[in-house]
Nucleic acid binder design. Structure first.
Length: 226
DNA sequence: CCAGACGTTGTT
DNA sequence: GTCTGG
DNA sequence: CCAGACGTTGTT
DNA sequence: GTCTGG
């Protein structure tokens, strides 16, 4: 699963890696991105190219009466995303990249949760496969764009910690994932478990457990921990 | 026809 | 235990 | 994902 | 929005 992640790159780095139409403004490195926060999302816009947006993490279905339904829809299983009522419209035409450098997974019981960071060893940008949705407040004028991260079975590296992990797209996959004309049948190969030679994993400080705590040290290895 | 429900993941 | 908020 | 809050009645 | 149940 993926319920917390890092995006450590600066704006210029992201601009070039994702071939964006313009550099992200007001962006600074993050080490504890949490659900319900505004998170970066990259969409393909016709006639414009790849554009950087901020959306709420936790997908709010268009028919929801309240936003809090999205608090738990932070992930979508790739195996069932095409069938689930909350996701099946978004997967067809509202796919997006969710930029990151890595993600956290936990092992252990409540009160004794040991976090691990899993990510790009050189802290280069990676992309999670995402989908997004637009929600209108039935009462007011409020419009919220929200997103969720697809998951797949863990690979060999992650398996000892957790049995699920985010769907990670490599640059060769970006075009297909963002192509609104792509057929749904073309996507499942992207959900296949695979090993990545640049992916690393190590235990980190439990400081990351508290959403809202930030700092470079959260994603650094802590010797002595298991 | 209208009204009412619809959701996910993960963990145990 | 369960829900909410970040 | 994890952390933190959650609650009522009746009696003093 | 879309499906199910009455």
């Amino acid at each position: 699963m993926c319920g917390r992640y890092t995006l450590e790159n600066e704006s210029g780095d992201l601009f070039s890696h994702f071939d964006l139409d313009e550099p992200p403004t007001h962006w600074q490195a993050r080490y504890n991105v949490a659900p319900t926060q505004q998170v970066p999302v990259i969409c393909s816009v016709e006639g414009v190219g790849r554009h950087w947006y901020l959306m709420r993490w936790g997908l709010i279905p268009a028919w929801a009466k309240e936003t809090r339904i999205g608090n738990r829809l932070i992930n979508a299983r790739s195996e069932s995303v095409a069938e689930k009522p909350a996701f099946r419209t978004a997967i067809q035409r509202r796919r997006c990249l969710i930029p990151a450098t890595g993600f956290y997974e936990w092992r252990g019981q409540r009160g004794h949760k040991q976090p691990y960071w899993i990510g790009h060893q050189a802290r280069r940008p990676i992309a999670f496969a995402g989908i997004w949705e637009k929600w209108r407040d039935p009462n007011g004028e409020q419009v919220i764009q929200s997103c969720t991260i697809l998951t797949k079975p863990a690979n060999q590296l992650v398996q000892p910690i957790h049995d699920r992990m985010p769907v990670i797209l490599t640059p060769d996959d970006y075009g297909l994932w963002l192509d609104k004309m792509a057929l749904l049948e073309a996507l499942p190969p992207l959900y296949t478990p695979q090993e990545y030679d640049w992916l690393t994993l190590y235990p980190v400080s439990a400081d990351v457990n508290s959403p809202g705590v930030e700092g470079r040290h959260l994603a650094e290895p802590v010797p002595g921990l298991v």
